[in-house]
Amino acid sequence: MAINNPYATYQNNSVNTSTPGELTLMLYNGCLKFIQQAKKALDQGDIEEKNTATQKAQAIVSELMVTLDTSVPVAENMMILYEFVNNRLLEANIKNEVGYYDEAASIITEFRDTWKQVIQINRQKQYAHTDEI
């Protein structure tokens, strides 16, 4: 009989019950986490772990690119920035340069912080609307 991992169960439930906006926020946070892991591994000389963490961050950026709603005018600019981030992660992985990770993290942090504000504004509007009913 397998023992259930409560943390894994919580994570699974939070993903399954999250809105698309919250899932996007989770992707941004995950990307930042893997960039930090890559930087730490690079600092420790663990090239294999650096590579794995970098590839995970790149996979998240690729997912953000694939799911980008291209019908929205701002999407073209976002796509350019996602491509830049992906390129910086690739360069960081090849050249073992922390500065490239920092550039990628800076852009993803901006996206994450903006996205978090959008979610908060939408929640405020939603709750204000339900108060009127």
Score class of each variant (00 low, 15 high):
38 A>H: 03
102 D>Y: 02
33 K>Y: 13
104 A>E: 05
53 A>F: 05
34 F>T: 01
113 D>P: 02
116 K>F: 09
84 F>N: 00
78 M>F: 14
76 E>G: 03
40 K>G: 02
27 L>K: 12
20 P>L: 09
77 N>T: 05
90 L>I: 03
132 E>W: 13
8 A>Q: 15
32 L>D: 02
43 D>S: 06
56 K>I: 02
6 P>D: 07
37 Q>P: 00
82 Y>I: 03
10 Y>P: 00
127 Y>H: 05
2 A>C: 03
124 Q>H: 11
62 S>E: 05
90 L>T: 03
89 L>T: 03
26 M>G: 02
109 T>Y: 11
39 K>R: 13
88 R>L: 02
105 A>M: 07
34 F>D: 09
70 T>N: 04
19 T>I: 08
44 Q>F: 07
85 V>F: 01
50 K>F: 04
1 M>I: 06
29 N>E: 15
124 Q>Y: 09
120 Q>P: 00
69 D>N: 15
70 T>V: 06
67 T>R: 15
63 E>K: 13
30 G>Y: 12
62 S>K: 08
66 V>K: 10
94 I>W: 10
75 A>K: 10
94 I>S: 09
15 V>G: 01
73 P>K: 12
58 Q>I: 00
45 G>V: 03
18 S>A: 15
83 E>I: 05
128 A>T: 06
114 T>H: 11
62 S>Q: 06
52 T>L: 09
9 T>A: 11
86 N>M: 02
76 E>W: 02
63 E>Q: 12
50 K>M: 12
87 N>Q: 12
51 N>D: 07
45 G>C: 04
130 T>G: 01
76 E>P: 00
112 R>F: 08
129 H>R: 14
91 E>K: 01
33 K>H: 12
93 N>G: 02
36 Q>H: 10
95 K>D: 05
116 K>E: 14
113 D>Q: 07
